Computed example of a mutant assay.
Amino acid sequence: MADFEPAVLVLEDGTRYAGRAYGARGRTLGEAVFATGMTGYQETLTDPSYAGQIVLMTAPHIGNTGTNDVDMESRRIWVAGFIVREPSRVVSNFRATRSLDDDLVDGGIVGISGIDTRAVTRHIRSAGAMRAGIFSGEEFALSDAEQLEAVRAAADMSGRNLSAEVSTPEPYTVQAEGERIGSVAVLDLGVKKSTLDYLAARGFDVHVLPHSVTASDVLALGVDALFYSNGPGDPAASEAHVELLRESLRAGLPYFGICFGNQLLGRALGFSTYKLPFGHRGINQPVLDKATGRVEITSQNHGFAVDAPLEGIIDSPAGLGRVKVSHFSLNDNVVEGLNCLDLKAFSVQYHPEAAAGPHDANYLFDRFRDMVIELHSEKEGAE
């Protein structure tokens, strides 16, 4: 043990956990959250939705399958920090080209290992997600009071708009695969590569747009549909994206949103959003599809949710027709999907594009494709 460098995890409420330095050395600050997936850590690390968050993996052994370029979901690692119980000492997978530790060091991601992640998880579940910091290297020498002061001075996730940090700086296009059925504008609020691949595989030319575009920009493209991606931050701080969506819906553009895109549809329809105590993160979250009665095991990563009645048909407070909640969480009854009855628009709070699985909800991309094809048929019939 003498060969290991010390590190410490400090929570906003003053709780401290001593461990070993992992990844890059130094100081990192962010919101401490936990993810319950046993696999797919590279997808988690490179998911832009985790920007600003120090992610704790509840699975005790992380890193045994290494990392590679194929499983990257974006251009870089986005987590603010990484917490594991026991990092794998060796890489044992034929697809691996490097170790997880290599990626963390190269990405400048400060981490910590060797702490009781069960205890930290139980604490966050009881006290709620909170600001935290990991200190190692020279930063470990700071006094307890100095470390805690740095944590409490960090930005809170509530009220933060992080889309500018994770969105593409320039628009680009992914060409349709196979038979082309139309085009879709994807507002990149932290989009994952798998999302673009699944849309292209359904016959869409995918126009990926920066977060700063306007409704006029989107409608000028002449696309057949609009898609809002996952992303980090507080949906209440993204009013420009809400207004863009309202204008697009009023213009008759079909819409599909996932994760952050579900929250923004909720706000566009006139519902409010709220911060969850500790969020839903992991690849084993049960969701009920109210239309079929089927339980789907889903991948999730969100700390905010839509505040809407689970039962009945609701008139949109923003005057956009009738709406109903299509899915909800079986763990805590959180809204997991919205369906517009007078518009061609729907959304889900979870991740149907989860590359590491599960794939229970992948059919939603087919539903989106069918919705666009149906609209084409209606227009041809009207002519």
Results as ranks from 00 to 15, higher is better:
D13I: 06
T15G: 06
Y17K: 08
R20C: 10
G23Q: 01
R25T: 12
G26V: 11
G30Q: 01
T46A: 07
P48H: 09
P48G: 04
A51I: 11
G52C: 08
Q53I: 03
Q53G: 01
I54H: 07
T58G: 09
H61Y: 15
G63V: 06
N68R: 08
R75N: 11
V79D: 02
F82I: 03
I83C: 00
S88A: 15
V91R: 02
F94Q: 12
A96P: 03
A96K: 02
S99L: 00
L100Q: 10
D103Q: 13
L104E: 01
D106V: 13
G107K: 10
V110C: 03
S113D: 10
G114N: 05
I115N: 04
T117I: 15
T121G: 03
I124K: 00
A129W: 01
A129D: 01
R131L: 06
I134F: 06
F135L: 07
E138Q: 12
D144F: 02
E149H: 14
D156I: 02
N161K: 04
S167M: 06
S167F: 01
T168R: 10
T168I: 13
E170H: 10
T173N: 00
R180Q: 14
G182I: 00
G182N: 06
V184A: 10
V186A: 04
V186C: 02
V186S: 04
L187V: 15
L189Q: 08
V191E: 02
L196Y: 04
Y198P: 00
H207V: 10
L209V: 05
D217T: 14
V218W: 10
V223F: 04
A225Q: 06
Y228C: 09
Y228P: 09
S229T: 05
G231H: 12
D234E: 07
S238W: 08
S238M: 15
E243G: 02
L245T: 01
L253G: 09
G270S: 09
F271Q: 03
T273L: 06
G282L: 07
N284P: 02
L288W: 11
V295Q: 15
E296Q: 12
I297L: 14
A308K: 09
G312C: 06
I313V: 15
I314Y: 01
D315G: 04
D315F: 01
S316Q: 04
P317T: 02
G321S: 09
N333P: 00
G337A: 04
G337E: 06
L338I: 08
N339L: 15
L343Q: 05
L343T: 00
Q349H: 12
A356G: 15
P358Q: 10
F365Y: 13
D366W: 08
E380G: 00
G381P: 00
E383N: 15
